[in-house]
Design a protein around this nucleic acid. Sequence first.
DNA 1: CCTCACATACTAACTAGTTGGTATGTTCAG
DNA 2: CTGAACATACCAACTAGTTAGTATGTGAGG
Lengths: 198, 198
Amino acid sequence: MKTKLKEGSIRLFEEKGFSATSVQDIVEAAGVTKGTFYYYFQSKEQLLMDIHSDYIGDLLMRQEAIRQSEASSREKITSIIGLLIVDIEQHGPSGRVFFREMRHLKQANAEAVKRKREQFRMNIEELLRDGVASGEFRRQIQPDMAAFAILGVTNWSYQWFNPAGSIPAEKLAEIFSDMLLNGIMSEGGKEHVGISNH
Amino acid sequence: MKTKLKEGSIRLFEEKGFSATSVQDIVEAAGVTKGTFYYYFQSKEQLLMDIHSDYIGDLLMRQEAIRQSEASSREKITSIIGLLIVDIEQHGPSGRVFFREMRHLKQANAEAVKRKREQFRMNIEELLRDGVASGEFRRQIQPDMAAFAILGVTNWSYQWFNPAGSIPAEKLAEIFSDMLLNGIMSEGGKEHVGISNH
DNA sequence: CCTCACATACTAACTAGTTGGTATGTTCAG
DNA sequence: CTGAACATACCAACTAGTTAGTATGTGAGG
């Protein structure tokens, strides 16, 4: 029943938002009453924290496996992009709740989640730094900003990508990896562009 | 007073979310009473629609100016990235409300906003198609997915970028333009990567 | 110059319903 | 007969929205 309450609430939070979803809505969707809800969860906020913890904990674990694998920086970055995009298929609703409803966590919980979120980002940053140091990536790349760019492309996909549509998640991951790694410009145009220093 | 109510509510919606912000909160922040609120706005939802219309309307207008300018596809794409990033400085809160609270608009309003949002995206897609056709951009680029990538990088910036921090908005726009146009990989590594067809 | 009709920009008090949370049961398996 | 897993009934606080009324301005006819 705990799982049913949690999974049902994810769908409701995604559709209506955390505040607009009442505990009554959640227990009705699960076919129980409020007594049951407060037997399993201390508060509505505690349930939201559970959802956040599950989501970011799982991603960090899977990112760690990629980090510790034997692969080039490029391959690791590509794997992380794949991890995030393919994850939409299974955890799209959780992700959307994660991105949108964090401000409804109380401060202590919000900080714990924020730290894990930042750890995920810093791990990408580190991979990028390694790749720049080894010459695999361009010298001009700023690892911190590049990490934000990668997370932007992938996280934004949660807002629009439909894994049941015409493009499979694996294909989208390839498209985005290619675009981020190789850029949009054709070879002829490249030398004209770059970061200016004025 | 109408402006004060609107601008105050944007800040509250950003901090607490639309549903968690009561009309009472809004009028207290503006120093008036609820009667005044309902004198200027038909409903709480109508106020949210106003915020959405203002935001997307302004962006579409400024995008149109870029589209109609005489410039290369690359320059136009760079300008649009700049438009969105520099906009964070002035309309960060509006943008965050726009991205997060659209599901609280009633259907008719949501559809109107969605159409304008899609128009903005399709305009980028068109610029990308032009660039691919003219050879300015790589043949392999898929304009629709590339548009989502660009919007991902820029829109995500609303979540983390602080224009008052050490990196000015104009600089960030340059960094992101460079990264999206030229990619992350160094020249030596490029030929190994690409979209496979298996 | 005055005043009457009307408009603008509000306020205080209210309604009808919903909220998260709690205190107190009841049921049934081990 | 115990305790885990639920249900019932309730509350104080809060919700969006409404109502009737009012202070201040404004413009035109006499």
